[in-house]
Design a protein around this nucleic acid. Structure first.
Length: 268
DNA sequence: ATGGTAGGACGCCTA
């Protein structure tokens, strides 16, 4: 039985409803995990999503900043909305979803961007980012009560050399500094997580999910980064039949600066 | 080395 899971940093869910509906219509993922909804819970646009066939919706939003949501056309059950770093930020939620004989724990993360200066001593936002990734070490890929796990989201870190347009030029740029990339990789390996996008590509292949708004022509300059990720527990990593980065969505009407990534698992 | 654009909420912070 296939289970398709999409992740997308939407940069204001209310403003982007037209392209959210387009994605649901064209790709019809079973589950869509959104980050940066920038929407208080009482203003969340439930109705157009239900009308699109997505009747199972769990949200964790706040006014103005951050915010995550999970939108599904199959039943989901909220597991947790966890406040990493105890700041009151809405940056995580997890749900249970049944797929075949599996009971899957799905995590949706929005990791702090970290500001501009990659020095935790003078930039509290960068320290917060490093602390957040440290705390993610407590999220393993195998959890009692679940047979498998999937972790998606905007992790705001591009861990590999070919996850950025220029490894050399971005080594001291927040999102690709060694303290971040090594920290994220160590956390991932400790938890037994498989980086599905990277294991399915060759190490030489450039993979991007984000292109800055500040470029004159995002496609022409193509200075992208892979900030968005789909991981799974090792026991279902080989069941992935498709993994698509919908780069074209960067060119849709009033786009997010991130594009959707969709993985399909064939689970018995 | 710098500045470039976008969103939320309404002067300025965040990405």
């Amino acid at each position: 039985m296939p289970l398709s899971v999409a992740t997308w940093n939407i940069n204001s869910v209310r403003l982007r409803m037209p392209i959210v509906e387009r994605l649901l219509k064209e790709q019809a993922p079973d589950v869509l995990c959104l980050q940066e909804t920038k929407c208080p819970d009482d203003l969340f646009p439930f109705e157009p999503l239900r009308a699109a066939g997505y009747r199972h919706i769990e949200i964790n939003g706040q006014k103005g900043y951050h915010g995550v949501a999970i939108i599904a056309r199959r039943p989901i059950e909220i597991v947790e909305r966890r406040d990493f770093c105890d700041k009151g930020d809405c940056r995580h939620m997890s749900v249970r979803i049944a797929a075949g004989a599996h009971s899957v724990l799905l995590h949706n993360f929005y990791v702090p961007a970290g500001g501009d200066e990659p020095d935790p001593d003078i930039n509290w936002k960068f320290k917060h980012k490093l602390d957040f990734v440290d705390e993610m070490r407590s999220v393993p890929s195998m959890t009692p009560g679940f047979s498998a796990s999937i972790l998606v989201g905007d992790l705001n870190i591009a861990p590999h050399v070919n996850d950025v347009w220029s490894h050399k030029q971005l080594l001291n740029v927040v999102s690709h500094t060694p303290v971040e990339t090594e920290g994220l990789e160590a956390m991932r390996e400790l938890g037994g997580w498989v980086d599905l996008m990277r294991v399915r590509a060759s190490p030489e292949e450039k993979l991007y999910t984000w292109w800055s708004y500040r470029a004159r022509d995002w496609k022409l300059s193509n200075r992208g980064r892979r900030l968005d990720h789909i991981w799974s527990s090792a026991n279902i990593s080989a069941s992935v039949s498709r993994l698509d980065i919908l780069s074209a969505a960067r060119g849709w009407e009033r786009p997010s600066d991130h594009v959707p990534v969709i993985a399909t698992f064939e689970l018995d």
